[in-house]
Nucleic acid binder design. Sequence first.
DNA 1: ATGTCTTTGTGAACGCGTGCACAAAGATGG
DNA 2: CCATCTTTGTGCACGCGTTCACAAAGACAT
Lengths: 255, 255
Amino acid sequence: MATGRTHRPASRSRGIPEATVARLPLYLRALTGLSERSVPTVSSEELAAAAGVNSAKLRKDFSYLGSYGTRGVGYDVEYLVYQISRELGLTQDWPVVIVGIGNLGAALANYGGFASRGFRVAALIDADPAMAGKPVAGIPVQHSDELEKIVSDNGVSIGVIATPAGAAQPVCDRLVAAGVTSILNFAPTVLTVPDGVDVRKVDLSIELQILAFHEQRKAGEEAAAAADGAHAAAAHRGDSAEQGPDGDVPAVMPA
Amino acid sequence: MATGRTHRPASRSRGIPEATVARLPLYLRALTGLSERSVPTVSSEELAAAAGVNSAKLRKDFSYLGSYGTRGVGYDVEYLVYQISRELGLTQDWPVVIVGIGNLGAALANYGGFASRGFRVAALIDADPAMAGKPVAGIPVQHSDELEKIVSDNGVSIGVIATPAGAAQPVCDRLVAAGVTSILNFAPTVLTVPDGVDVRKVDLSIELQILAFHEQRKAGEEAAAAADGAHAAAAHRGDSAEQGPDGDVPAVMPA
DNA sequence: ATGTCTTTGTGAACGCGTGCACAAAGATGG
DNA sequence: CCATCTTTGTGCACGCGTTCACAAAGACAT
């Protein structure tokens, strides 16, 4: 319900699928590269390869935006850059605040990808009084007390939370109360926000855990050829024998 | 047939859907919190709320792992923590290397979420000779020349790339050649890897761009609601005044 | 034991995203 | 102007993921 809502139920806004929106930045980056190399036009096949997706998918994605290609030729790079930028809302300047200037917050403040794409770091905010005034990435850190004033004075609608987990929800609440309606959360916590506020989560350890799963599976497949010893964990499972308990064990449970 | 390893059908391993795997870390985190508070059992409804998902989805996810719940009671927290950890492969210790010790790399090295979840930072690697030997998060940075030796000596199978975009692909190639089979990529580039290597991408600016899209859409809806009858004249927002909800585009087509 | 109550586990329906395959559209050359 | 060639745009089918709704399973009280 109110937690981490990422999808749009009443998405009749323009009918652009969420999956497509998530790929638009990918296309935009590839197109920017082509633009810098002064490539005039690009085919769906070439652009798809540069963006790392399927060409049919790319064409379908673009079809949601309109017919911006020329059959037999391809897409005009500059025109497409403009169209996607406009669609993503990057033709305007979005002021963002970063809350929590630890290692990660500092990394974000220094990250060049923001400024170059329509985002402007309006302020850095930290709860530690010792940080106040200290410049990070050329921007002086301000104390949390100023949060509400900063948000409203700068018309900030996008906030980035890079605080420890415990501080995330209170910071989130204050941001929302001050007028922020989109939040990028790096803290390992589930944020609860009112309706109408978008939250996206980036969780470093979750990504690693997903990799570990696949890694384990790969190791298990390899071990399929080799003999495996008995494992210790005594799983007391009620019934059935169908699915093997884990990836490296045959369906038959040795007694 | 045994070597047919194309994309990620993921079906044959155990039939755990990819979407479910991606949520397991979420459940695990919620369960860990309950465990620390000595909560013995939890219902699907409670756990789902803590993890920020639908309870039906959670039950279905768990059903892929087996029948670990007790009807009328719920799930045993400790038991479930163990089962999910084992499923994700977190009962073993995964050595990881972080390549590119800039702001982001340092943040990752300091991130506590790694060590606490079965991951161990085996080494920090950077191409800058001036960084060599300098300790970050208590670990001395080593020079890129040592990459292959570090990976093979430590049996590293998971690598984290936090380099600038230009260096990402070469670093990736070297990691893979040295034996790494899972890569977490923070550089804004599409990595090309051979079959059998998993890549997950975390892209900060893409997340922001997706937020900007929704933010723009929200602003457009508000404007449409305010100026009800007429098709919204996008206020003085700097961009060209044509992003009405209907989706028609200016006829100006640069050739 | 029996009945009631709670909560799981899952069959089934539905919607979304993906990829195929091809017709339409336009460029290009004769 | 016509034929051919290239590339887009999309109808369609399929599979995955989500959600509903409910029967089965067990706890608990009487």
